[in-house]
Amino acid sequence: MESNEASLSILMFPWLAHGHVFPYLELAKNLTKHNFTIFFCSTPIILQSLPLPHHLPITLIPLHLPSPPELPPDLHTTKHAPPHRMPLLRETFHASKAAFSAILASLRPDILIYDAFQPWAAEAAAKSEIPAVHFATTGAATYSFFYHPRLPPPPTSTSTPASWKPFWLLALISETATSSVRGFPTSRGPATSS
C-alpha cells in the first residue's frame, strides 16, 4: 500500500492462550508494515504480558470478561487458570459476546480476524456487515484432525459405500470451494478467487 492511501483497520481477536496470542501478534506486526491500522483485543491480563514495541501502531483493546468468584481477572488466560477452571474460562469467554459486540460496534473495523474458539465473533461481525476471517494458529495436519469430526455424515443409502463416496466427496469439495479459508464459512457468503 502506498502511504497516501487510506489505511484499512483490522480487529484481531485471538483465543485466550499465549500459543494463540503470539501468532496473532506476529501477524499484527507484519500487517503494520503494510499500512494497516491494527486493534488487538484480549483480556487485560494477556495484554499486559505482550512484548509490544512502542513504535508499532497497534492499539490494545481490553475485553473485560465476567468475573465469577472462581475465576478472577488474573485467571482470564489459559496460562494462569488451573486445568480444572478451563471449562469455566471457556464459558466466561463465551459470556463476553455482548462486550465484544460493543467493542466491534465502537471500532467499526474494516476486517475482523478471529480464532477458532469464538465463531460467535464472526456472527457478531456479520450482523455489523464487517467481513470476518479465521486465522488458524496450528498446522494443517492438526487442524484436519480436529475439523474432520465436524464434517457432515455421509448420505444414508442402501447402496455400498463405494457407490456414494465419490458423490459425497464432490459435495464436500463443492461446499469447501464456496467457503472462505479452508472450509470455514465467511460472514458475507462465498469466497472469491483472486
Rank of each mutant, 00 (worst) to 15 (best):
P190I: 00
E91N: 01
Y143H: 07
Y114M: 08
I45F: 06
S187P: 02
R150S: 10
S144R: 07
P161H: 06
L88K: 01
Y24S: 01
H94K: 09
L107P: 00
S67L: 03
L71A: 04
F100T: 12
K79V: 03
T160I: 10
Y24A: 02
I38L: 03
Y143C: 00
E26C: 01
A28D: 01
P44K: 06
D115V: 08
K127P: 00
L8W: 10
Y114S: 07
T176L: 12
F36D: 05
S3A: 08
P82H: 14
P109G: 02
A116Y: 07
T160E: 08
P66H: 09
P62A: 09
A95S: 14
E129N: 15
T160W: 07
T156V: 10
S3D: 11
T59I: 13
P14W: 07
P166I: 09
S9A: 10
E123H: 15
L31C: 08
S9N: 05
L89Q: 03
P44H: 09
L75M: 13
H94W: 08
G183I: 05
E175C: 11
S101D: 14
E70A: 10
E129L: 06
K165Y: 12
P53I: 05
L170Y: 13
L52F: 09
H20G: 02
L16T: 00
L31T: 07
L11Q: 00
P83T: 14
G139H: 08
P166Y: 07
T158P: 01
P23T: 09
P73V: 12
P62L: 10
P82S: 09
V181Q: 08
A102V: 07
H94A: 08
W168T: 00
I45A: 05
P51M: 05
P66T: 12
G139R: 01
H54F: 13
K29R: 13
L172V: 04
S194C: 06
S179D: 07
N30R: 14
A177F: 15
E2V: 06
P82V: 13
F100L: 14
G183L: 11
H134C: 07
S106K: 15
E70Y: 02
R182P: 00
L11P: 00
A132V: 00
P155W: 13
S144K: 06
L89I: 04
S179P: 01
F40H: 04
S163W: 05
T43E: 03
F13I: 00
P23M: 05
E70P: 01
I130G: 05
A132S: 12
K79H: 12
Y147V: 04
P72D: 09
F40Y: 07
P68V: 11
T192W: 02
A171F: 15
E70N: 05
G139S: 04
P72E: 06
T176F: 15
L170K: 06
L169P: 02
N4V: 11
A125C: 11
K79T: 07
L75K: 08
F22N: 13
V133G: 02
L71W: 12
P82N: 04
S3R: 13
P57Q: 03
F36Y: 15
P152R: 10
A125M: 04
L50R: 03
E123Q: 13
A98E: 11
A177R: 10
P153R: 06
S7P: 01
W15P: 00
A124I: 03
